[in-house]
């Protein structure tokens, strides 16, 4: 899995918002895991530089809403969709900046895992745990 860059987005102190980080924790326990994993509370502009050096990128984030089967893989295409806020960026906006600033755009995917609970808690809900397992199982097939 050389050249695969895996971003986990979220906050493990906010219950199911920690799904992205939990995914990274678990994937690193596997025999063959992506050589570069990055934990993020939120994506920022400088992540575009890191993406520009990768062969392939996967963003893993929790999702507030219903997903068929509890998780979803989707292509992450560049989009000039900037939040008018401090500095948080969506994965698609990071891909857009990567293309614009560095003239590169590696293949990228977004893995969303459904969450239910967003309270201050370091534990995830039971349902989120099960969805995490299912998403992990899909990962090896997906690659």
């Amino acid at each position: 899995m050389s050249g695969v860059l895996l971003f986990g987005i979220g906050n493990c102190g906010r219950s199911d918002d920690g799904l992205g980080w939990a995914f990274l924790d678990r994937i690193q326990q596997q025999a063959e895991f992506p050589e570069q994993v990055e934990y993020r509370y939120q994506l920022q502009v400088e992540d575009a530089a890191m993406v520009s050096r990768a062969d392939r990128v996967i963003f893993v984030d929790s999702y507030q809403g219903a997903l068929p089967g509890g998780f979803q893989w989707a292509p992450c295409k560049p989009s000039r969709d900037f939040e008018f806020t401090s500095h948080v960026l969506a994965p698609a906006a990071v891909m857009y900046l990567c293309q614009d600033l560095y003239g590169k755009i590696p293949p990228a995917e977004l893995l969303l895992i459904q969450g239910d609970c967003w309270d201050l808690d370091t534990n995830m809900s039971a349902a989120a745990h099960q969805r995490l397992e299912n998403a992990l199982e899909s990962f090896s097939f997906h690659l």
């Binding site: 502009v45 400088e46 575009a48 530089a49 000039r80 900037f82 939040e83 008018f84 806020t85 500095h87 960026l89 906006a93 857009y96 900046l97 614009d100 600033l101």
Partner: peptide, 23 residues
């Protein structure tokens, strides 16, 4: 305009400045 009031717009229209800022 609102769509220009972000670092994303700076990156698009002032790429060299944005690249240095990022680094």
């Amino acid at each position: 305009p609102v769509e220009k009031r972000s670092v994303g717009a700076v990156a698009i229209e002032h790429g060299e400045l944005a690249r240095k800022g990022i680094m």
